[in-house]
Amino acid sequence: MAETNAKSLASPAHNNNIDDELLAKQFNNGDDSAFDRIINKYSAEVAAFANRLLGWPGDVDDIVQDVFLAALLGLKKFRCECSLKTWLFTITINECRNYRYRQVLRLKIFSKAADKVSLSPAHSADKTPMENDTFDRIQRAIRALPAKYREPLVLKYLQELSTNEISRILDISQNALQVRLSRARKRLKQDLTELIEE
């Protein structure tokens, strides 16, 4: 028991939560530098997460800026009930949903230019752990998934968060999360049968 307590107190996650709490507290006390620290600490993670959620478009500067704008305006209401990272990820999900919604609206309005407006593919010529054709197929399959299936997939397999954290971020029960994950896998399996069976 004592060992578990000592381990949890000295663990990086515990320390991280204390840091988050300190940062939020200090920001609420009027110290602006705390917000800079939050940006330094989490901007890369938020950018990577947004990039994955949107199907790897590469350029996610605007979304990252929107996320931290929402965080700046709402940080005074942050009550440390969850970690700062979980909270920022929740904001990121909402911002990505808004972004995709705006994108769909734009595509509907300018339907002729639909192909041109769509997100540019993020091929990298130098890094080739996978052929571009295969990557294109996966990218299309991921983008075609509805948000309610894509989000748990990204959080589980790419961000590698625990089911507890994911259900907290998505605000759904663990059962609902398992159902969504299973359906998402089923859909991906249908879309990528050949790749999965290789």
Binding site: W56, G58, D59, S124, T128, N132, I142
Partner: peptide
């Protein structure tokens, strides 16, 4: 693998 191929965000 797809994530690695896509590379990091800008």
């Amino acid at each position: 693998k797809a994530d690695k191929t896509a590379g990091t965000a800008a």
